[in-house]
Design a protein around this nucleic acid. Sequence first.
RNA 1: GCACCCAUAGCUCAAUUGGAUAGAGCGCCUGACUACGGAUCAGGAGGUUGGGGGUUCAACUCCCUCUGGGUGUACCA
Length: 585
Amino acid sequence: MSASFNPADDIEAALKAAAPAAGPNPSDFTPEVRTAGPAHGDFQANGVLAWARREKLQPRALAEKLVAALPPRIRDAYEVSIGGPGFINFTAQPPVLLEWLLAFPSRAALATGAAGTGRHGTSIVDYSAPNTAKQMHVGHLRSAVIGEALCRLMAFGGETVIRDNHLGDWGTGFGKLIFAYKRWVDPVALAAGPIEELERLYKLAVAATPDGSAELEEARRELVRLQAGDPENVALWRNFTEISLREFDRIYGKLGIRFDHTLGESFYNDKVAAVYRALTEAGIAVESEGALVVFHPEHPRFKTQPFIIRKSDGAANYASTDLATILHRVAHFHANRIYYVVDKRQADHFEQLFLTAKKWFAKAGLPLPVLAHVDFGSVLGENGKPLKTREGENVRLKDLLDEATERAYALVSGKNPDLPETERREIAAVVGVGSVQYADLAQNRSSDYLFAWDKMISLDGNTAAYLLYAVARIHSIFRRNNLDPSGPDAGPQAGAPETAGELALARKLVKFGDALRQATDALRPHFLCLYLYELTGEFSGFYTADKVLVDDPAVRARRLLLCARTLLVLETGLNLLGLRTLTRM
RNA sequence: GCACCCAUAGCUCAAUUGGAUAGAGCGCCUGACUACGGAUCAGGAGGUUGGGGGUUCAACUCCCUCUGGGUGUACCA
């Protein structure tokens, strides 16, 4: 009998199986097993209360019958008790903790365990999606960081994940940019800093094309030429995209992001006409004020607030392309689920998009994938307003990551000046970028979050540096003695945990699966962050109380095992969040 | 105007989606180091969860209402 990756699943199944022997209508009983706080054991089953109420029975009496019907396997593995009005508490006994530690000795073993309990099918994650011809700024941070973490979590849980970067690479702005490029491009500047030169040109273009001007008319003609396939303009536009992607890839490299596809809005340019036709023929879209729009009469707001899928000038907008994108993702990628990791201010758009897609697909007899807007709040400065530079400009992502790295470098150099320069640089990159990622992920994504350098790079509290430090310390233990944490040095000869520190650490380790499930099901990485932070806290307590490298071989073996598994879970967890880890810092 | 989101310790945030005595970090107070990396650990003080009603075995969580913030709301994405 091998250990369950998530022991809660094992307990859940056992309770379900025992239910017929305990009370009436057991098929209605859901055990509701959750992790419990230390005062109430490791796992608690709450479902008896609802069951007893439904059957008008005494909850505690029903709980007692249920416990009595549990198989010996569970009763041996856990100390089982009934608490409060009828909660069943399960405290993992040392042998079952040891069993788990031995059953999951590697990342591959953890992945196999996680995949056994996760969702399957194909999920497309639409994240990052910056506009081309501009640099990424702080407003692009959260989508990229959260999106990547979710991709890794879902893939670890066994889903087939497709990462799609839905670039903003099409639209009226490109007519203006071509207009300015043809007049004012500076080839030297373009070679030296291509994206900066495009930004400069775009600003010139905006200033030079006020409403009603002849220049604006000319810019529009450039756009028409581009859309008609004029070779010169198409070549310019392609070059803009290439320049932008090169720039984006530098950022993605730092954040550990690699897309499977980069199908921007332009990709759907020739696919929107079919959408207009389908929605019009289905009677879903109607003409209004010259535009093609969708109203939703059953909705309190969208019965009057239109979803504009074709502008009155005939051009597409992001409603058109987003609809075409859903069709393509279903027809071409066979997506079961599509996640949009996008700012919560676009909630209206996605609500309208999903309503429209639902009606359209129903009419067309197409399978509708699960569509979810994975929203997140804004990044605020310390004044509580959206984060800007002193000059009122958006903070460039490149500058932000560079500053994080510089701050981490100063810190590392202060703490550990003897390390070689190159290693300190490498550590600074991992700690600096990781701190930015972790600060973003550690908070519930739905709320706005306050960007504060000092808290972010701090070594105290729920921060990347605190977790990375624990990882480095564990590596140090093994390195000191020429031991391999991933090999048999921490393995089968170890006994079950005994001391309070060992037990607390082991009991936290076996809840890794539950933390992954929570984070993945809710699409909220902060659940995993919180778990890793608490695990690190347990480790630090254990490490202070219980010396690992003692002479007694039995004590030493079981403590090395705990260190090795803590290291494995921390490194695996941090990696699933998109962070890199270190062996020294 | 209408709609949605938010309000938890002095500050920044949690609370497994209705579960047990609402938890952390910072700051404040008290302890532990010639150290398996102190970038650490152990402990203390700090709360009528914005106010008021309601639903039930159980409410920070759900419903109503009030107050104070934020966001969105016809052709940008």
